[in-house]
């Protein structure tokens, strides 16, 4: 019995979905296993699988039980997982540079700074100098869930969700950051505006600013650059900036 079989749990999620869970925590090592299974399922299709949804620590598999029943799907997955070379999984070295306007008067940078006992400039400095790993997407198209493996803030979520003032906002709690393309309501703290939305329906073949597995580095911009990039984005002329880093420079081996 290898290590993988010991840590994997197959969970029943109704009669048309299962989740293959690799652990209880949201860390990059676990997430890379999820991504490896997702990739394996794309390369070795199992008939009856409708779609897969990789999340922090588990892979949800939506299937058609008329094409493959629960028992047979579980067996096929166990067989497939024996073939996967888990040790070869490497994280991406792609870093998407995401411009953010932190100084908009409606952001909550001030309340985050007060909670953390640091200055507003420190909030921006900390948020922009970390590498954030993209664990998954969910909730709305392009909404990406990021976390900084080297820490950032400690502030918890608000106990009551509140509507956000902008459609394309950047929100945080603790080490987590999300970019939401739509008007949303959440308990996260809104610390900036993203001039280029993380979902661009005008580019159906490449609609997302950041995809899971990539890294994100935020860049602080001023009001005039915000307006410029927003204008470029709305006219479908914005090209995102992607840099390639040496893996040794990225904090993937640190626990998140």
């Amino acid at each position: 019995m290898n290590l993988i079989e010991e840590r994997v749990k197959i969970l029943c999620c109704g009669d048309s979905a299962i989740a293959v869970q690799f652990g209880e925590t949201a860390d990059i090592e676990t997430n890379l296993m999820v991504r490896a299974l997702d990739l394996a399922l794309k390369e070795h299709r199992i008939a009856g699988i409708v779609e897969t949804v990789p999340t922090y620590r588990s892979e949800m598999i939506h299937y058609d039980p008329l094409a493959i029943n629960y028992q047979k799907l579980c067996e096929a997955l166990k067989e497939l997982m024996k073939q996967v070379d888990w040790s070869s999984i490497k994280p991406s070295n792609e870093v998407v540079v995401v411009p953010i306007y932190y100084k908009d008067p409606k952001t909550e940078v001030k309340s985050v700074a007060e909670y953390e006992h640091i200055s507003e400039e420190d909030v921006i400095r900390i948020h922009t100098n970390r590498y954030h790993y993209a664990f998954m997407m969910g909730v709305a198209p392009g909404t990406v869930y990021l976390s900084s493996p080297t820490g950032s803030f400690t502030i918890p979520r608000k106990s009551v969700p509140v509507p956000k003032p902008y459609a394309s906002s950047i929100q945080i709690w603790s080490t987590h950051t999300t970019i939401s393309p739509f008007h949303s309501q959440s308990g996260w703290h809104m610390i900036g505006r993203a001039p280029a939305a993380c979902y661009n329906p005008k580019r159906p073949d490449d609609p997302f600013l950041v995809t899971p597995g990539q890294w994100v580095k935020f860049r602080s911009i001023e009001a005039d650059e915000f307006e410029h990039i927003e204008h470029e984005f709305l006219n479908n002329r914005y090209e995102r900036e992607i840099i390639h880093k040496d893996l040794s420079e990225l904090p993937f081996n640190k626990c998140s």
Binding site: C13, G14, S16, A17, A26, T55, Y56, S58, M60
Partner: peptide
């Protein structure tokens, strides 16, 4: 830790 949601969950 957030995970996938099936229809009818």
């Amino acid at each position: 830790v957030s995970d996938g949601i099936a229809k009818g969950a």
